[in-house]
């Protein structure tokens, strides 16, 4: 697997391989890059942010997961969010979906975009 280390602005290009249960990272200039590479290989996680349209079609609710979730679930997470029923009384801080896909992360409202 190839990726870019994002821990510092150097942005080393990492090459990550697994052989005999041993994960090897090459291309890193410092130890932090190795740790990042191993984490990206074994359990990469991302915070998901997106929007849903408000029920009246006038504006949107901006959302985020309150924790990073497994990167491989991002696509399903977006689908799940887009399918959810949108209540007209959403406010920033409200929980939009509890325990998203069993990840333990909640989807919370960060902003309501609506011109009064």
């Amino acid at each position: 697997m190839k990726t870019i280390c994002i821990v510092c602005p150097v942005g080393c290009e990492l090459n990550i391989k697994k052989a005999d249960r041993q994960i090897t990272v090459t291309g890193h200039e410092c130890i932090r890059g190795r740790d990042y590479g191993v984490k990206e290989y074994t359990a990469p996680e991302r915070i998901v942010t997106t929007i849903v349209p408000l029920p009246d079609g006038q504006g949107t609710a901006a959302l985020k997961t309150d924790k990073a979730i497994d990167k491989r679930l991002v696509k399903d997470a977006l689908l799940e969010i887009s399918r959810a029923q949108v209540s007209p009384v959403l406010k920033p801080g409200y929980i939009f979906i509890k325990n998203l896909l069993g990840t333990g992360a909640n989807v919370v409202v960060t902003c309501i975009n609506k011109e009064k």
Binding site: I47, T50, I51, A62, K64, T110, C111
Partner: peptide
Amino acid sequence: NQCIHNGFGLHFFGEELTGPE
């Protein structure tokens, strides 16, 4: 308001906020 992604405020608040937050 339009930057709904996270990555704001790491220096000021020590946490990753979205733009609106």
